[in-house]
Write a protein that binds this DNA or RNA. Structure first.
Length: 273
DNA sequence: CCTAAGTCCTGAGTGC
DNA sequence: TGCACTCAGGACTTAG
């Protein structure tokens, strides 16, 4: 669910909650079988650890402590929230009890999410982080040159290509569709057929749509919430996502939709070539 | 019955 | 034929 803007918004919320030397007194596991099993050793490793930082890499959240880092992925329906005692819900899989009495809950109905540990300084060796592409907001690493090199000779459609986390991280089904609309590129176009200038526009569009969505606190469809429980607002700015059959906001032609790479995809035949 | 913000795996196909 | 890589499709799960 959450793509980069939603994960970044959650990161900022968690950083605020955990700032000022928060200490994790105890991790309480209620259910271990998420996408992968939560390691049995994780609660013991986290107990008594002081939070040093809350980071994001791709769609992963990383809470650093001196002894171990906690890695989480929200999958499609994952949320972190401040959960006062008494606020227990179905699908709360894990509670982090802080030393000051507050409590964080990880809730994920579909269980496509993930909790794991990273050894200190071990990001590059972690199997889920190894092999990830560059951060899209890093203009130096994610450039038109870089994307053009990865598109060369590729028959795959441009939309699934930019959703491939080995190519660039953080772009999912919503923001891929929105960035392609902004860049005027048809999502089904084979990557090798997209012109160099259009790839430059796409790189800029990915950055601009992600920046705008972060500024809006992400997009709330059903489950996504910020750490404080608020929804995001960017869903009101969608130009194409979930708008198949409706009028293009730019030219009023009906938007078309089809399944591409297993994901629903919407675009404007007139505005996107 | 259908759909859904994401990976992850398998198997078929391609090119050297 | 073998190997490496690419690409499409399905699986996982719960809720609305």
């Amino acid at each position: 669910m959450p793509e980069l803007p939603e994960v970044e918004t959650v990161r900022r919320g968690l950083a605020e909650v955990l700032g000022g030397d928060a200490v994790i007194a105890r991790m309480e596991l209620r259910r271990r079988d998420l996408r992968a099993a939560i390691p049995r050793t994780l609660p013991a490793r986290l107990a008594g650890q002081r939070v040093l930082a809350v980071r994001r890499r791709a769609k992963y959240l990383i809470i650093d402590t001196p002894g171990v880092s906690l890695l989480s992925h929200l999958g499609m329906t994952g949320t972190w929230r401040v959960a006062p005692i008494g606020d227990e819900r179905d699908h709360d899989h894990c509670y982090l009890h802080l030393a000051d009495g507050r409590r964080l809950a990880f809730r994920d109905p579909r269980r496509f999410g993930l909790l794991d540990l990273i050894e200190p300084g071990g990001d590059a060796r972690h199997p889920r982080l190894r092999g990830l592409g560059p951060e899209p907001l890093d203009a130096r690493a994610f450039s038109a040159d870089y994307l053009a090199a990865l598109c060369a000779g590729r028959k795959v459609a441009i939309k699934p290509l930019i959703m491939d986390q080995r190519v660039v991280v953080g772009v999912g089904n919503i923001y891929a569709a929105e960035a392609l609309f902004r860049a005027g590129i048809r999502p089904t176009k084979p990557a090798r057929r997209v012109r160099r200038e259009a790839l430059g526009a796409l790189v800029e569009s990915i950055r601009s749509v992600l920046d705008a969505a972060i500024a809006a606190g992400g997009s709330t469809i059903s489950d996504y919430r910020q750490a404080g429980g608020e929804g995001g607002w960017f869903q009101h700015d969608f130009q194409v996502y979930d708008r198949a059959g409706l009028a293009c906001r730019r030219c009023a032609a009906p938007l078309v939709g089809k399944v591409l790479g297993g994901r629903s995809t919407v675009w404007c035949r007139a505005c996107q070539r």
